[in-house]
Every structure is written in structure tokens, then in C-alpha cells.
Nucleic acid binder design. Structure first.
Lengths: 114, 114
DNA sequence: TGGCTTCCTATCGACGGTCGACATAAGCCA
DNA sequence: TGGCTTATGTCGACCGTCGATAGGAAGCCA
């Protein structure tokens, strides 16, 4: 397996795909969900989210359709495709490997372990 | 505490500072060390490392001096400053918070937990 | 009716970190 | 002499993220 050289980028896309794994959501909802689930540690900017959504769609990992919100507003609902689900699995596995590697290095810090 | 919006970037700098926490090293050695400690999961490119080292130096987190290698070659040895050590502590704390938040979200994935 | 707030999508320019390729030099060894 | 390893560094291109900005539609209230 080749080492990843880009370190921990692309987390945003993984997070978006993850929140869509349960059920289709619209962009606004994705933002709220991530912030809420992370207990305000993480935050998605709209200016980052929508371009990301377009990338994911272009790559076929996500599909979208206009629907009506519970609040009777029109919104684009995004849903994970089969390919997207597979890709998400790969992303998560890679992220876990990388973050564990970082953790291993951090644990060597004086005053970290024991 | 404000949520971090830049997600998991800047890991490279944290990793560099971490490897310098033990003892001063030269750039080449830092690359090798990170790759080795991470068991080839992580890899630092020279083209990313040296600019990063210059940033760290400019910010006063690292100090450098020319020295002789074990192999009798000249190399720039980088050492963590006191400010750098403090900053590293902050970075690590923030990284742990963020990665744990990501992990919490990932754990909600169907087939992840239980 | 008018105006305000909330919900929701979207784009833009700027910024900055990373990448891969390239240049350079010095020591080692055959 | 030539080639390999160690070592530092630069460069242009790319791309994701950011913060600001725009705008539309529904709901609320006076």
C-alpha cells in the first residue's frame, strides 16, 4: 500500500459522505448535522460545502434532486450512490490508518504516554 | 472554544515539531523518521518539508544551525524552541479534539460500532 | 401590506499549503 | 573518473478552503 503524502486533507468530503450514509440531506442540513454531532468542534463553511458537493456529484458518489423541506422550502437533497458508499468505505479505512499513524508518533512525545 | 473550520490541515507542521521534541534533527532525518515511525503510512515530501521548516523558523518555533552529520556531511540541524514546545502542546491538543470529533461521527456509520 | 428573520443555494477572488520536478553540492567508493 | 547516497533548497502549478457576498422563497408579526 502506498503511503499517503497529502496527510489529512479531504476530511471534509469524508464527513459529508458520512452524514449522507444514513439518509439523504440538503446542504444546510449537512452543515448543521456535522456541527451538532461533533459538539461544535467541527464546522463546515457554506463556501466549502457547496463546491465539495459538486465535486462529489461530478465523481458519481452522490446524486441530487430538488425536493420540499419539512418547512415547505425547496432544497437540493443529496443521496449517497452505491459507488459513493464503496468510496466512503475506502476513505474511512485510509483515514483511520493515517490518524492512527499520527497518534503513534504523538504518543512518543515526552509526557504523552505512561 | 471556537470550532476549527480548517479541519485537519497543518498536520505536517505538527509532525515536524513532534519529531524535533526529542532532539535536534536535520530535514532529511525528519523525513526518514516520520516515515519510519508511521510504518510507511505517512510520508513527507522534500518540497513540502523545507518550506514548512522555514515557516516554523520564521514563527520562532524552531531554530537552526549548520552542523556536521555522523557521516561527515554538512546539514542544517533544527531544534525546538521553548515557544515551539508550547505551541506544539496546543497543536496536539487541538488535533486530538478534532480527530476524536471525526471519529465520533464515523462511529455512527452503519456497521461501524457494536 | 410591508418588513424582518430564517432557511437554503450558490459563486467569487484570494490565500496558502502541498506536490512533483528540478537544481545543486559534497562525501564516499570503485 | 563516474556514479551513488546524503542533503538542502526552489519553482510553477494545482486545488481545496475561506470569508464575503448575493439572492430567493417561506413564515411571522405588526
Amino acid at each position: 500500500m502506498k503511503p499517503r503524502t497529502d496527510l489529512l486533507q479531504g476530511t471534509l468530503e469524508m464527513l459529508v459522505l458520512t452524514t449522507l450514509a444514513d439518509e439523504p440531506m440538503h446542504g444546510w442540513g449537512i452543515c448543521e448535522r456535522v456541527q451538532e454531532l461533533s459538539e461544535d468542534v467541527l464546522k463546515l463553511n457554506h463556501g466549502s460545502l457547496y463546491p465539495a458537493l459538486q465535486r462529489l456529484k461530478r465523481r458519481g458518489w452522490v446524486r441530487s434532486e430538488w425536493r420540499q423541506t419539512e418547512n415547505n422550502r425547496r432544497a437540493r437533497y443529496y443521496a449517497l450512490t452505491a459507488a459513493g458508499r464503496t468510496h466512503l468505505g475506502d476513505e474511512v479505512a485510509q483515514w483511520r490508518r493515517s490518524s492512527q499513524a499520527v497518534e503513534r508518533i504523538l504518543d512518543l512525545l515526552p509526557g504523552a504516554g505512561e
